[in-house]
Write a protein that binds this DNA or RNA. Structure first.
Lengths: 208, 208
DNA sequence: GTCTATAACCTGATAGAC
DNA sequence: GTCTATCAGGTTATAGAC
């Protein structure tokens, strides 16, 4: 029988310690700039163990990257394909959900964007992404745009929503510098965004 | 006396050919992943020449990076600090100016964002960025927010504007894939954005 | 499973001929 | 200025002892 203590021990097993260190270093420095030695050191282990568990730097990276994307995607899929919420309810759910998540993982957006842009074809194949014919959220958006006789391309709305959520985490250094704000103040700015993004999306649609 | 032909020859001198190749490769793969050999090959030259002209990989990178940022910044500074245009005129000028520029240089945003996030302190010191006490555009924005009694932080407006302009170029692969659009169609989507971003910014301010 | 030592390879930079 | 050849150092991955 497994006790709770066993589970905790298991969850910080050597394998998991390596993955955790890899997540940290890869996210911070990107694939090319991280050395396997950095990861081993960060995990408090020896370099050879890394290859014992994961065979190669690339395989370890792939695993980290795929899990990062799936952690991201799993959140969105449930919200996006729910038939019982409206489009605007979905913007609220996505904003709330992602902003919370990203405040805890501020390096993830750039990590994923780099992985994606580095080699889009490989990226989408690795994460097993299949273009959906359509999803509920986009169908609802198209419906709204049609009813309100807006000619704007739905992509432009979706890009705005994702950008509003994600872009602050990409531009934080310059925003902090230009706005002359502290990190604590920046968190408050983000909290303000969380409430406003759904309002903004609606205003954008109405004004288009 | 220098003829026009001389100038053209001069502008594709060995030094300039190396820089052009470096721009292309660094922008595409980032600092760590590019090998000096890649740049030499791209320039149709051999590796030793690269060190003859630029002494090291890092010095070459710094030069490319600084010029990229300055090409970006020089455009904005003139617009942002003009006392004779309104805030909303500035949003139009910036959108128009940047979108055109980025359609021709779609890889630049990610290149600069990576350089900045990699080591913000070093980045700002290299490009010689000094925090301005304030700039005309932000002063005008603060004025508008005050008059309309909006409590929103001006950074959130500025981040939205920059994000609306830049984010499509970071998320192009996923936008193309999810929206099931071709590259030509995506250009049209961007053209549509160009007209709408200033309208959206105004709508965002009014709704905040 | 974990370690040390080392193999095999790659990369930035330079020496030296032309 | 431009090239080929090469060095010196670093990196991934593995062999082999424990």
């Amino acid at each position: 029988m497994k006790t709770k203590a066993d589970v905790i021990v298991k969850s910080s097993s050597t394998e998991e310690r390596i993955k955790e260190a890899a997540r940290k270093v890869f996210t911070q420095k990107g694939y090319a700039a991280t050395r396997t030695r950095d990861i081993a050191e960060e995990a408090g282990l020896n370099l050879a163990l890394l290859n014992y568990y994961f065979r190669s730097k690339e395989k370890l990276y792939d695993m980290i990257m795929i899990e990062a994307v799936q952690g991201f995607a799993s959140r969105v899929i449930k919200i996006v394909n729910n038939e019982y919420t409206t489009f605007y309810e979905k913007t609220e759910l996505m904003t709330e959900n992602y902003m919370e998540f990203l405040i805890d993982h501020p390096g993830l957006p750039l990590f994923i964007i780099n992985a994606m842009n580095d080699d889009p074809k490989k990226f989408f194949s690795k994460i097993g992404f299949k273009r959906p014919d359509s999803n509920v959220m986009i169908r609802q958006l198209v419906q709204i745009l049609m009813e309100e006789e807006k000619k704007i391309h739905p992509i432009n709305i979706m890009v705005n929503m994702m950008g509003m959520i994600v872009f602050p985490f990409l531009s934080a250094p310059i925003a902090l510098k230009m706005g002359n704000v502290s990190k604590d103040e920046f968190i408050m700015v983000l909290e303000q965004r969380k409430k406003l993004i759904p309002v903004w999306i609606e205003a954008i649609i109405k004004s288009s």
